[in-house]
Design a protein around this nucleic acid. Sequence first.
DNA 1: TCAATTTATGAAAACGTTTGCATTACTATT
DNA 2: AATAGTAATGCAAACGTTTTCATAAATTGA
Lengths: 340, 340
Amino acid sequence: MAKLNREKVDIVTVSNAANVSISTVSRSFNHPEKVSADTRKRIDRAVRKLGYIRNRAAQTIHGIRSGTIGLIVPTMDHAIFSELMEAFSRSVEAHGFSMLVASHGYDLEKEYAVTRKFLEHRIDGVALIGQEHSEETYQLLEQNRTPAISIWNYSAKSRLPCVGADNTRAGEMAAEHLLENGHRRIGLLFAPGNGNDRAQGRMDGARAALKAAGIDTPAEWTLQSPYSLSAAKRDVRILLEQTHRPTALLCGNDVLALGAIYAAQSMNLHVPDDISVIGIGDFKGSEDMHPALTTIRLPAQRIGFLAGEQLADAIINKPDHLPRVECAIALRARQSCRAI
Amino acid sequence: MAKLNREKVDIVTVSNAANVSISTVSRSFNHPEKVSADTRKRIDRAVRKLGYIRNRAAQTIHGIRSGTIGLIVPTMDHAIFSELMEAFSRSVEAHGFSMLVASHGYDLEKEYAVTRKFLEHRIDGVALIGQEHSEETYQLLEQNRTPAISIWNYSAKSRLPCVGADNTRAGEMAAEHLLENGHRRIGLLFAPGNGNDRAQGRMDGARAALKAAGIDTPAEWTLQSPYSLSAAKRDVRILLEQTHRPTALLCGNDVLALGAIYAAQSMNLHVPDDISVIGIGDFKGSEDMHPALTTIRLPAQRIGFLAGEQLADAIINKPDHLPRVECAIALRARQSCRAI
DNA sequence: TCAATTTATGAAAACGTTTGCATTACTATT
DNA sequence: AATAGTAATGCAAACGTTTTCATAAATTGA
């Protein structure tokens, strides 16, 4: 069966082989109950024999859903986004959709271009990361009435429906944990905030909580490092070489936190005895590090899964209003912070 | 411009607005030189005003390429695959393709199902990870004459053209490095080999090299752990609690190696003084760990990039034969192994 | 046994493009 | 001024489906 056939096999080929009209073949796929058992069997045999595969493009121009959903991320190779992607993919796939993915490298114009390209493919819906997008991107989506959601951050006044966590609160919680443990000299290490409202929100939250406790972090203790172990390590080493050192480091994400820990270790400083480190994210592996990382857990898998469900639901059932979903975050107090 | 219009806008809408026929509109997109500058300008204005976006599905059924490439991975949230994906995506995108992605969780039947689904979308090409696929998957691709490549492992006798590294050799090189450093008591820690020819190949290579040196690893020093820091940590702890301990651990990938290091650290064993650890992969961050991980570098980004180029080339230029591309691997001797 | 339903199938239009061919209006050549 | 050639455009067929409507065949009910 399914022999190698030089010519393309389409619904006509099948209908000929099964000695029925193309309408019947189509029906046998889409409304099998309307076709006699006998005919159906004959068609199935022909399909298998010829190796026929339906052409979704043809269905799509007929007004049927394309069966694709787009996911546009800043980058795929950050642990946090790949976890999210995997979960999102699994959940939309369970509803029969295929996933188109692209990354834009924190460039909002690129994001617009990719969105446009996806719309050419007539995606049934699209998910974007965060809520910082160009006005053109928002308009493009509204104009085409393409179901779209924003994932990763929660905000009560997001322009798109969103599924995510409150990054500002995450920053606050991290700061509060350090404060509760008696820290007052706190260094800040964050990823650049432009094109990245997650990082910005966390930073704002942390700053606000510290300010509320009467603490103003000096500029030389406020580090901005790209998302990379080596960059964080390098930058934190410089900070720690100063004579006047913070007792704790609040890091915008777990990778930066791990970099900070490595920096400390490489200078023979003990974490948490000599310096405490707290992260945000709770990436895979943060729990198993040594010392186990104290961090704020952002439920990436849950967010990805729920986002997929929401979007699939939006496409299939066309509710006229999509809710905003806030996913709970929580402190994971482990071994990288101590009370002073 | 681009007002919110209730009705769909297609090429007919545009042609009316610009007072030309649909043929001219189409030509103005695809063969602009065949349309007078004046008309083109008029069309462009209409396009912008209406917010028209070409329908690739319609082009596709006309026999034109769909402009999509599929990438099917075991899982997206292993560092190594996400790095690969990002590089692959960038490279196919540069050639104008959009990327469909799916994961199969090391289940070859799922892989077949996903491949089929992608074929329904009329992908122009597809990339699979590794060379272990079901016969049905191979036949499906051959039958449809869909350009396909296998990425990640190189093998001179692969059924599909491949772009990748020699995993067997990686295993050998890791073993050789330990042998050269005087180790004879070597523990093995690998991911399960079924549905994962990469892991299997590395293990075979390591075993062969050890055997050639007259070393037979006892069963209790041969660990099989799922790809996870915590599993590796747990399993290695058990191994290290034995009185008769290996002097070195050869790990099938860097995550397992890092887990092994954490296990050692948690038992107050020093790496490399008390035990040496070597990994395979050289993931992002392995270099920055503490101690910096000695490992065999597999160039994930380069593989992803070249694979994208190869596949795009196969689609665009239809050469009748695609070469196999082997990407060089190399030892990165850092601080986690010592000579004894 | 005949009319009235019901069931199974086919014919044809529609979906949004691209492109080969035909037509018209210029431009250049003599 | 007539002819050949070229540039710009339109018409209509084609791509592979789905679905509405019509029709034929089978079943039901009297």
